[in-house]
Lab assay of single mutants.
Amino acid sequence: PDLGLTQLFADPNLIENLKKNPKTSEMMKDPQLVAKLIGYKQNPQAIGQDLFTDPRLMTIMATLMGVDL
């Protein structure tokens, strides 16, 4: 199971919303991170391994779920 990750990354406004959010806007200036996020739309399971190697993803996930870290 993808634990709902498919829906989190399926939002067509995902990148724009993250660019507008004060907690994630600075991160979204990294083209490699943006490319990763776009890739998760097609393969949400890929985030599982990346969560352990890129701490920014935890902040992004929390933001998408509405959790304040």
Rank of each mutant, 00 (worst) to 15 (best):
D2Q: 15
P22T: 05
L5N: 06
L8G: 02
N13A: 10
E26S: 08
T63F: 15
G66A: 07
P1K: 03
Q45M: 12
K19V: 08
T6V: 14
L3E: 14
D30S: 03
M65T: 10
L37I: 12
V34Q: 05
K36S: 03
M27D: 02
G4A: 14
D30L: 01
K36E: 03
D54V: 01
L64H: 03
D50V: 03
D11P: 03
P12W: 03
I47C: 05
D50F: 03
T63E: 10
A35T: 10
G39L: 11
T24Y: 03
L69S: 14
L14P: 01
Q32V: 13
E26C: 07
L37A: 00
M28F: 03
G48S: 15
N17K: 15
L64S: 02
S25Y: 06
N21E: 05
L3H: 13
Q7S: 11
P12Q: 07
K23H: 13
G4L: 15
T53P: 03
A10D: 12
E16K: 06
M65E: 05
L51C: 08
F52H: 13
E16S: 08
D54H: 01
D54C: 03
D30I: 02
A46R: 11
G48C: 11
L14A: 05
I47G: 05
P12T: 06
I60G: 00
Y40D: 01
G66F: 07
N21L: 05
I15Q: 01
N21P: 00
N21M: 05
D2R: 06
L18Q: 00
P1M: 08
I38F: 05
D54G: 01
I15S: 01
K23P: 02
S25F: 05
D30M: 01
R56T: 06
M58R: 14
V34M: 06
P22W: 04
K20F: 05
M61D: 00
L64Y: 04
T53S: 14
I47A: 09
G48N: 14
M58P: 06
T63Y: 14
I15A: 02
P55S: 11
Q45I: 10
E16M: 07
Y40R: 01
T24V: 06
F52E: 11
V34W: 02
L51G: 05
T6R: 12
E26P: 06
L64F: 04
D30H: 02
M61H: 04
M58V: 15
V34I: 14
E26I: 07
P31L: 09
I38T: 08
T6W: 09
Q7M: 12
L8C: 07
Q7N: 11
L8W: 08
Q42W: 05
T63L: 14
F52Q: 13
I60D: 00
D54S: 02
T59K: 08
A62V: 14
E26T: 07
T6H: 14
P31Y: 06
V67Y: 12
P1L: 13
K23I: 12
T24H: 02
L18C: 02
